[in-house]
């Protein structure tokens, strides 16, 4: 583990970014964007936030590629469940 990965500067930068996009997500809501655009925006922001936390705070960015894949790829499966449920919910009477 090299010093640079744990450097305070990077953390502060990430922290500021996190706060900035949290606020961004928060203030778009009252703007009255069309629903789908608003939702898209919000979800992208959530993914960005999640990405920052995982990559920098949890350090995943600095791990070996094999480790990164072994953690991230399985998540596709739970997303598949969510997609199937949403599809079921919108296309049939439940």
């Amino acid at each position: 583990m090299s010093k640079q990965e744990h450097s305070k500067k990077v953390y502060i930068k990430v922290w500021i970014w996190l706060l900035a996009i949290t606020i961004a997500g928060f203030i778009v809501s009252p703007l009255g964007l069309p629903g789908w655009l608003h939702n898209l925006f919000i979800v992208i922001i959530a993914l960005m936030k999640g990405g920052l936390i995982v990559a920098y705070f949890m350090h995943l960015k600095f791990e070996r590629l094999s480790l990164i894949y072994s953690i991230l790829l399985p998540l596709i499966l739970i997303v598949a469940l969510a997609v199937a449920l949403l599809y079921e919910g919108t296309t049939r009477f439940l």
Binding site: L77, A80, A84, Y87, E88, T91, R92
Partner: peptide, 18 residues
């Protein structure tokens, strides 16, 4: 095995495409 679960639910009125 993670993407076949619906085969237990064919008669549940599942959307035919799914």
């Amino acid at each position: 095995s993670f993407i076949v679960w619906g085969h237990h639910m064919f008669v549940s009125g599942m959307n035919p495409f799914l």
